[in-house]
Amino acid sequence: MAPAISPQDSRAPLTHKIRKPLVEKLRRERINGSIEQLKSLLAPEFLRQRPDSKMEKADVLEMSVCVLRRLQSVRRGYAKCAREAPRLLSQEERLGLLGSSREDKMREEDSSPLGKEDSSAKSGPWRPW
């Protein structure tokens, strides 16, 4: 004997068939919206590299990967610099390369009542042009 099909069971495949294209459409809209945001962020970079070509979705994604890799490289460079700076500064102090003239200059700036403004007064009035 065949299983009995209730009215609710017969609606389940129908709602799934209706709902799936809507969900897929929303997913595509999200993807396209994100690609448009990337395109607007990368437009200057893209125009610099390919001034006469149209930006396709694949181009936008490839350019995003390139820019992110470049940023990662810069970030690694800054991190390496931050790690090396204290070590190099401590070596300079041990070798006496940070001479007293630098320390004296810093003390003078700190003790001056006008601070940095004092040096600008000697160079003349400030002019915006």
Rank of each mutant, 00 (worst) to 15 (best):
C66S: 15
P21T: 03
R69H: 09
R107P: 00
L61I: 10
F46N: 02
L38R: 07
V65Y: 02
Q91W: 00
S101T: 12
K54N: 12
L47D: 09
S6N: 11
C81T: 06
Q49E: 08
L95R: 15
E117V: 12
D52Q: 11
M106D: 08
C66R: 15
P44L: 05
I35N: 01
L97V: 01
S101C: 04
S101N: 13
P44G: 02
R87T: 14
S100W: 09
P21L: 04
S64F: 04
V74Q: 04
E103G: 06
E92A: 08
S120L: 14
R102E: 13
G124L: 02
S10M: 06
L97H: 14
A85W: 04
Q37F: 06
L88T: 02
V60P: 00
D104W: 09
P44E: 02
R30S: 05
V74A: 05
L98I: 15
R102V: 13
K105A: 15
G115P: 04
V74C: 02
L68N: 09
S6P: 00
R127E: 08
R30C: 04
K122H: 14
K122T: 12
E56V: 00
K20S: 07
N32W: 01
E109Q: 09
Q91M: 05
Y78Q: 06
E24K: 09
L42C: 04
E45S: 08
R83Q: 11
V67W: 02
P113L: 06
L114C: 09
G115C: 07
P3K: 15
E56I: 00
I5Q: 14
L89I: 15
R28L: 05
P21N: 03
L26A: 03
L89V: 13
P51D: 09
R127V: 09
K116W: 11
K54T: 11
R48H: 14
E84N: 13
C81S: 03
M63A: 06
S101Y: 09
P128D: 10
S10Q: 06
G99R: 14
E62T: 05
A58I: 11
L47M: 11
S119L: 14
R76C: 03
E84P: 01
V65A: 04
V23I: 13
G124Y: 04
L88A: 07
Q49V: 04
L47W: 01
R83N: 07
I31D: 02
R69S: 08
R127W: 04
K54V: 14
R50H: 14
E92V: 01
P51T: 11
E84H: 03
A2L: 14
C66L: 15
V23F: 08
E56Q: 07
D52F: 07
Q37L: 14
G96M: 08
A12T: 12
R107V: 05
K57S: 15
R30A: 06
S34L: 15
V74R: 02
R19Y: 05
I5M: 15
E62G: 08
V74P: 01
K54A: 11
V60F: 01
L42N: 03
E56A: 02
K57N: 15
L98Q: 11
M1C: 08
I35V: 10
V65R: 03
A79I: 03
